[in-house]
Design a protein around this nucleic acid. Structure first.
Lengths: 336, 336
DNA sequence: CTGAAAGCGCTTACAG
DNA sequence: CTGAAAGCGCTTACAG
């Protein structure tokens, strides 16, 4: 049945093989197998059955590479990360995006092509090379601008970024959280506590869109509510916690940009000396650790599904670039 | 720069476009971009640079569909599940396999094609159709035998199953856990507690390989150590717990086949009336919930990486089908 | 040393 | 109503 030793490569069964076996042209076989016999090609019922039978018996599996190369769509979506590793690990901050992406892709009937962000062998083969195997792509993480990517976007290859991502001279599509509304709510809350000024703890050294967005909205909201940003404390996400706590002493209220930074302080025995209802975190809790201070709901998975929905619309031509979508967030206030 | 409204489809830049722009044959362009200029095709340095420059400027991205269709390998691995949903959710039992698969694929320089197990539009397009886009496939979950799959395996398409999976008349490759050794260890442990007989709690209604394996090895080990399997209690994984506990009363020792079943009993206030050091679970704890009874280490992620390693060897021709690999397990004994 | 041509497995417009 | 042929974008053996 099966022969051993140096197993032969893999023998593809093609349309031609079936055509030969049944004695018709392979165009006919193609038509029959694709159920297109109502169209321009018509085949007798007898032949139809023979072809179907032969295909089944020979174990024919269409080569979708060829199909896709010829025709248009492929029902395939690329997922690409600019990060070092692809976020399949549940502890990864981007993981919930991926879960949402897969869920929605499945619902919409798309398969997923996961591109690993590995170094390249040849100059010509860009990181994005495999992107053209798919109908469109979703990008996760903080990107570095690459000419090649810009060029694809310019030429209308459907690409959706998870998070607001701008590329100069380029019209990018993205889905992001509605940071503005939620940050205004959070400051309303702080204001209702009688707070007039706060310290802003900034963990990000490199500014990129989502973080500068938050800072902008925070300042805007503070201005509107007559509150004062008393100062900005730069703090590494890990380490220098003791020193960090020191620098918070005497503050009326504290606003953290990152949950990880807030958590590293929350964990310390010595409290920062601020009443907990006067501490805000401008992020959802994706860490799974307990958080008591005020923050917001995690809609990361939802952001993933929205990204796919938008991408599919772009692929279908139901939407035209550029499109930007916002996901609402809900406050989770401190509870004593 | 960019024009709005009814954005045109997506204009591919092909080798031909670059060839036209630089005034050489597109075979030359191909050679230059693939860095194969040392071979049969030689190009002047001047031309080389021009081609490279044009490619960059025009944003050329090779179409790997075409590349793969023509040539052989694609550096692409299919991951397929027979389950309803693809296990990207961390609470899914198969999720750790996927994590290991992605990790190793990344390491080996392969991208991943995730095939969703959705219903089909056409008869000819089998669930496995996209499989030929890749160099090989990894199968997760409990399969139903499908002719199409069998035929692919018969024709030496590289496929590795996660878990022992047999298909009649077919030589399948698989990686699995070394259930035999660990189950013998577990019974040694039970024996050292002075146990002479035990009850076997069986949750699986449908027998498939991994579970029948365990039962077989359990019986074998019991026989060897002069222990008696006093009875088999069939128990649904969820529900009927109360009744389940009743049926365990008076047993000298209990062996569970599934961690979920064991946990649903462990959670109940009323203990099963068996000393905890006389309870075994023939599974690792993939649930994340605390488990006190004796079980074994989770090597699921490792199984995923091993599956990829084996698949890559099959693709490279370093190994010939059929290959079976075993992953060792370690006992985690009850601790009071 | 170079470029034209065949061919990978399909689909579909087109000529008979 | 049917089948031969062109073409999707590449690579590579081959003829000039």
């Amino acid at each position: 049945m099966t022969d051993h030793g140096g197993s032969e490569p893999f023998k593809k069964i093609t349309l031609k093989d079936i055509a030969r076996a049944t004695g018709v042209s392979y165009a006919t076989v193609s038509a029959v197998l694709r159920r297109k016999t109502t169209g321009t090609i018509r085949v007798s019922d007898q032949t139809r059955k023979e072809i179907l039978k032969a295909a089944r018996k020979m174990g024919y599996v269409p080569n979708l590479l060829a199909r896709a190369l010829k025709g248009g769509k492929n029902s395939l979506i690329v997922v690409f990360t600019f990060e070092k590793v692809f976020p399949v690990d549940a502890r990864n901050e981007y993981y919930p995006f991926f879960v949402g992406i897969e869920e929605e892709a499945e619902k919409q009937g798309f398969d997923l092509l996961i591109l690993n962000n590995r170094p390249l062998d040849e100059e010509s083969t860009s990181k994005f090379s495999r992107i053209l195997m798919a109908d469109g792509a979703i990008m996760i993480g903080v990107h570095r601008v690459e000419e090649r990517l810009k060029s694809l976007i310019d030429r209308n290859f459907p690409i959706v970024f998870v998070g607001r991502r701008e590329i100069k001279g380029c019209e990018t599509n993205w889905v992001t959280f509605d940071y503005r509304t939620i940050i205004h709510s959070l400051l309303d809350y702080l204001s209702s506590e009688g707070v007039k000024s706060f310290l802003y703890v900034k963990s990000q050294t490199k500014a990129y869109e989502p973080y500068s967005d938050r800072e902008v909205f925070l300042k805007e909201a503070a201005g509107l509510k007559g509150m004062e940003m008393a100062g900005i404390v730069e703090m590494a996400e890990a380490g220098t916690v003791k020193k960090g706590i020191k620098s918070l002493e005497g503050a009326e209220a504290v606003v953290f940009d990152r949950i990880t930074t807030a958590l590293s302080i929350q964990e310390e025995k010595e409290a920062p000396g601020i009443p907990p209802e006067r501490i805000l975190i401008l992020e959802d809790n994706w860490t799974g650790q307990p958080v008591t201070w005020t923050h917001w709901t995690s809609e990361r998975q939802r952001l993933g599904t929205e990204a796919v929905k938008l991408l599919v619309q772009l692929i279908d031509g139901t939407e035209d670039s550029p499109v930007h979508r916002m996901i609402p967030l809900q406050m989770i206030p401190f509870k004593s």
